[in-house]
C-alpha cells in the first residue's frame, strides 16, 4: 500500500477538483475514481456568489485535501498561500506549485526548492510539483519534501509521459514516493507511468473535460491499477541484442 508521510492510501490515483462542469459531476466522478486525496486551490471569495463553495459537496472524511499554491509566481507568494490554506482548515498537506511563466505554467525549480525548505520548517507536508529533474527531486527530498510530483508533460497538454527518461531516473533514485502529475491525458498514459514504477499519479483535466467524466474516472482508476499490478508482476523486457552465442564466446581466457 502507498504510504506518504505516514498516511496510507489504497488508491494510487489522486484527483483534481478543477474544470468540472458542476460540483455534482465532480462529486460523482471523484467517487468513481476511488481516489482518497484531492487537490484544491485557494481563491478570493466571489462576493457576488457567496454559496459557491466546493466544501459543500466534498466529504472531508472521505477525501484528504491537498491544497495547492496555484497562481504563486515565487517562493514568497507560495508560502503566503500555504499559510492561508492551513488557516482555511487545509491541514498540513500542501501541493507546492510555483509557476512564474503564465504561458507554459512550468514550475520554477529554484523558488520551489526555497519554498519547500521554508515550509518544511513551518511543519507542512510538502509535495512539490516539479519538472522531471532527478537532481532537483533529490535536493527536495534532502530538505524534507514528503513526495515529489514530476510532470509527464506541460500541464493541460494531454501529451502523456514525454519525460519518461528523466522520470525513470527519479523513480530509481528517490526515497520518497514519486507521483507523476500533469499532462496525463488518457488512461494509457497513466498505465505507462505506473508500469514504470511511479507510486501514484494525479489526474484532473483529462477526467473533468471528458465527454462523460464519471466513466472516464473509472477508466483512469482501472488503468492505474493495471499499471501498478504490471509493475509489481514484473514486465518482460523488450528483447535486445543478447543473440545466442556459444557458451564460451569471448571467454576463452578463463581457467
Amino acid at each position: 500500500m502507498l504510504t506518504i508521510a505516514g498516511r496510507k492510501f489504497r488508491s494510487r490515483l489522486f484527483g483534481g477538483t478543477g474544470k468540472f462542469s458542476s460540483p455534482e459531476v465532480m462529486k460523482e466522478a471523484l467517487a468513481a475514481s476511488g481516489c482518497e486525496m484531492v487537490t484544491v486551490a485557494l481563491r478570493r471569495v466571489d462576493l457576488d456568489n457567496p454559496d459557491d463553495d466546493i466544501m459543500r459537496v466534498l466529504d472531508r472524511d472521505r477525501y484528504l485535501f491537498l491544497p495547492n499554491t496555484s497562481g504563486a509566481r515565487d517562493a514568497g507568494e507560495a508560502i503566503r498561500l500555504a499559510k492561508l490554506a492551513r488557516a482555511s482548515g487545509g491541514g498540513e498537506w500542501l501541493k507546492l506549485e510555483v509557476t512564474p511563466d503564465p504561458r507554459t505554467l512550468l514550475p520554477d525549480p529554484i523558488e520551489t526548492l526555497k519554498a519547500t525548505e521554508e515550509l518544511v520548517k513551518e511543519g507542512f507536508k510538502v509535495l512539490p510539483y516539479i519538472n522531471a529533474d532527478p537532481i532537483l527531486a533529490l535536493r527536495l527530498q534532502d530538505v524534507g519534501a514528503v513526495a515529489v510530483m514530476p510532470l509527464g508533460s506541460p500541464i493541460g497538454t494531454n501529451q502523456g509521459v514525454l519525460t519518461r527518461f528523466q522520470i525513470e531516473i527519479i523513480i530509481a533514485q528517490a526515497q520518497v514516493p514519486v507521483i507523476v502529475d500533469a499532462g496525463l491525458g488518457a488512461p494509457s498514459h497513466v498505465a505507462e507511468a505506473m508500469e514504470m514504477g511511479a507510486d501514484a499519479v494525479l489526474v484532473n483535466t483529462a477526467i473533468a473535460v471528458a465527454g462523460d467524466p464519471v466513466r472516464m474516472a473509472r477508466a483512469f482508476a482501472m488503468a492505474v491499477e493495471a499499471g501498478r499490478i504490471a509493475y509489481e508482476a514484473g514486465l518482460g523486457a523488450v528483447s535486445k541484442d543478447a543473440a545466442p552465442s556459444s557458451p564460451d564466446d569471448g571467454l576463452g581466457f578463463l581457467r
Binding site: A242, S245, D249
Partner: peptide, 26 residues
C-alpha cells in the same frame, strides 16, 4: 535495462551459468 534485485539474484544463480558469454557481452 534495470534488472533490479530480483534480476541480480537471477544473474548470480546457477541457472545463469550457461549464459555467461551473453552476460559478458551485456
Amino acid at each position: 535495462d534495470h534488472p533490479g534485485l530480483d534480476g541480480l539474484a537471477a544473474l548470480l544463480s546457477p541457472a545463469a551459468e550457461p549464459h555467461l558469454a551473453a552476460m559478458a557481452k551485456r
